[in-house]
């Protein structure tokens, strides 16, 4: 076999595997969109039908009207924005301290923080809920924002990136009359734009998708978030899957838009940091 033919076969295999991988990833997504356009009968049909008999957007309007999604969207945005700002502040400051500053007990503290990652988050739900009740924060925004203002995982991740920046840069800045905080703002953050963007996006997504905690700490309809909207269609008489799917589409759209805008940074950040969302 000559080399050219070998290359062609190698390419076919390579792209074949990639296409299969892409299909596997896209399938549920496509299923969601198609199902959002089906009628209730179609969605329950056995054997299942792949395409709806007619593509109607009726489910979307029904779903949108069934719950105050506008209000949910505003709530989700408020929680996401404030939580993400807070997470970025704590993460960047802590990572800088761990990576660059010297203080007694640094190693012990970092080990302790990492050890908390071993605690299952479900266990934290209970203690955090009790704290919220005692603070009388139930049914408030701060109950959804404050308990998750620091993430050990992000801190550890960013610490690794900060630690990779050569000492010489820090010393050069020192000679240039640039103290710690200014160095952080003017040098460290711009250089680590990639990982910081990644952290921002991951945090936005996890806020957007969080369901159990907001459900626990909110009672009134005015305080609910988007993900709660999906539960609306699960009633004692059964689930209206076509409406759940339509609502899911609504939920996902803003994240998709964000991805389209920030695609360059996301890919850069993920490939740089070797983590996935």
């Amino acid at each position: 076999m000559n080399r050219k033919a070998g290359n062609v076969i190698a390419n076919i295999l390579k792209y074949g595997v990639l296409i299969i991988g892409a299909l596997f990833t896209l399938m549920p997504f496509l299923w969601m969109i198609l199902s959002a356009m089906k009628t209730n009968a179609e969605i329950r049909a056995i054997p299942p039908v792949f395409f709806p008999s007619k593509f109607s957007l009726e489910n979307f309007t029904t779903a949108w009207k069934a719950a105050p999604f506008g209000r949910y969207l505003v709530n989700t945005l408020i929680v996401t924005v404030f939580n993400t700002i807070g997470v970025l502040i704590t993460t960047i400051l802590a990572a800088f301290a761990f990576a660059r500053l010297n203080f007694p007990g640094k190693k012990v503290l970092l080990t302790l923080l990492l050890a908390t990652m071993m605690i299952p988050s479900e266990m934290l739900l209970i203690t955090n809920f009790i704290t919220m009740t005692k603070l009388k924060w139930i049914d408030t925004y701060q109950a959804m924002i404050v308990p998750w203002l620091a993430s050990v995982f992000y801190i550890y991740l960013l610490t690794q990136f900060f630690a990779q920046i050569p000492d010489a840069l820090y010393l050069a800045a020192k000679v240039d009359k640039c103290r710690d905080f200014k160095y952080l703002i003017k040098i460290m953050i711009p250089i680590n734009k990639g990982p910081i963007t990644t952290i921002t996006i991951l945090n936005v997504i996890s806020n957007w998708n969080s369901f159990v905690w907001p459900l626990l700490v909110t009672n009134s309809r005015e305080m609910r978030v988007l993900s709660y909207g999906l539960v609306q269609f699960q009633t004692e008489e059964g689930s209206a899957y076509e409406l759940i799917m339509a609502a899911s589409c609504i939920l996902v759209i803003p994240i998709m838009i964000m991805y389209l805008f920030l695609r360059k940074y996301i890919i850069e950040g993920v490939t740089q940091s070797g983590i996935k969302g």
């Binding site: 050569p166 050069a172 000679v175 040098i187």
Partner: peptide, 12 residues
């Protein structure tokens, strides 16, 4: 004025 071995220029 100090010049480092790896120059320590601010890359951004």
């Amino acid at each position: 004025g100090l010049v480092f071995q790896n120059y320590a220029l601010y890359p951004h």
